[in-house]
């Protein structure tokens, strides 16, 4: 059973530790703009939602890639982008209906959550437990819907 990132927006205080940890782990710099997890603020910060790829079952990004640059990591189930194979065509960025693959203009390639190889730094640093890395059989859509955001009916 793969583990996945379980996000509970109600616990998020918008401290942005996750964005900093993600950008540092993956891009080597503290820059939220290069983070693969993004905290969205509503009503001037009254509600905040950390948001990233759910490693969905459908893997739209992987199937749309013309050069097999996105593959499934057999240990974590993460859909990972290989920078050396990616040509930067961005087709995956429009194919993912969750908007969780982004173009990185500094590399000319794309970036998405890869679960840090099984030790996701966002969950590691989150001080409130809003992001945890747990065993889960929830997948794709249902997970997106179930990690409900009650405040925003």
């Amino acid at each position: 059973m793969y583990k996945s990132l379980l996000i509970d927006p109600a616990k998020c205080t918008s401290c942005l530790q996750c964005e900093l940890a993600c950008s540092f782990e993956n891009e080597g710099l503290f820059n939220p703009a290069k983070s693969r997890i993004k905290v969205f603020e509503f009503e001037h910060g009254l509600t905040t939602i950390p948001y990233t790829c759910t490693q969905c079952e459908e893997a739209w990004c992987l199937h749309a890639c013309p050069v097999e640059a996105i593959t499934v990591n057999p240990n974590t189930g993460a859909k990972e982008v290989s920078d050396s194979i990616c040509v930067g065509c961005k087709v995956c960025t429009i194919a993912c209906p969750f908007g969780t693959v982004n173009y990185n203009s500094s590399t000319g390639k794309v970036m998405k959550c890869d679960l840090c190889g099984g030790d996701p730094q966002c969950a590691e640093v989150c001080p409130t437990g809003a992001i945890v890395y747990v065993d889960s059989d929830w997948t794709g859509y249902s997970k997106m819907r179930d990690s409900a955001l009650e405040a925003h009916a």
């Binding site: 969205f40 908007g99 997106m144 990690s147 955001l149 009650e150 405040a151 925003h152 009916a153």
Partner: peptide, 14 residues
């Protein structure tokens, strides 16, 4: 647009 999506889809159960 991203905010609208999060509010409407993730909040759909509420």
């Amino acid at each position: 647009i991203m905010h609208a999506y999060l509010a409407c889809v993730q909040g759909s159960r509420a």
